[in-house]
Amino acid sequence: MKLLNGEIISNERYSEYLYKMVIFSPYICREARPGQFVNIRCAPEGIYDPLLRRPFSIFDIEEKFNVFSILYSVKGRGTEFMSHLEKGDLIDFIGPLGNYIDLAGTKNNVLLIGGGIGIAPLYLLAKQAVVMKKNVFFAAGFKDKSYQKWEDDLIELKIDYTIYTEDGSIGSKGMICDYIRSNIKLFNGYDVYCCGPKEMLKTIQNIYTKSSNRVSVLLEEKMACGVGVCNGCVVKVKHVKGEFRYKRICKDGPTFDIREVIFD
């Protein structure tokens, strides 16, 4: 990991709150792998409000152009600041952070389940799986059509996918977890990776309680340091003898076996 300043190549608005920022960084392109993230400073130099950096999954890497991108939804002051940055501006970030997902030696069939902005880290994983000639299925669920433009990115990967929206504005109407539950047999023998809102992850954990599939979950939490020193971004996980302990999402994760996670 390195502390870096990257030039913004584009900061495209996908929908009202959704943006894709493309950043020039040969270092990240060379070093980063699926599942990792960058911690971005969301205020100008010398300004300490908002104070903390914000973690973003690496959404895509285009080695040919030495650029990587993040997909972000404007939710607070940090992302609001980012949404106003323009092509040519410099952005201060550190990365790549967190453990990467190693697809080597895993099953040939991969099921990705993303809810809302949770699709962001799964996209790079899908891309990697395609390079490794794995059979990938992407199941994505959203509230509405705000992720419609993202479908164009997905189409480029030439993989099978399904999209569900709560209001039916794109894809099928309904919840993505219901689709998974009804089609669980279709995905027998798949390695599963999921990322999204906590309620969705809890449901997936229930769905896969008794199955033998390997199910990994990518978690997020409010973060301070991003490098493992502050113990701020912890998740409760099972420990020996029915006990629990806390693991750091930034340093021990962000990917965990879904069966070890305790969602309160």
């Binding site: 939490e221 409010k222 973060m223 301070a224 502050c230 113990n231 701020g232 971004c233 912890v234 998740v235 409760k236 629990f244 302990r245 806390y246 309160d264």
Partner: peptide, 8 residues
Amino acid sequence: KGNPPPRI
């Protein structure tokens, strides 16, 4: 163990 999250 420390305190339950959210911690920050």
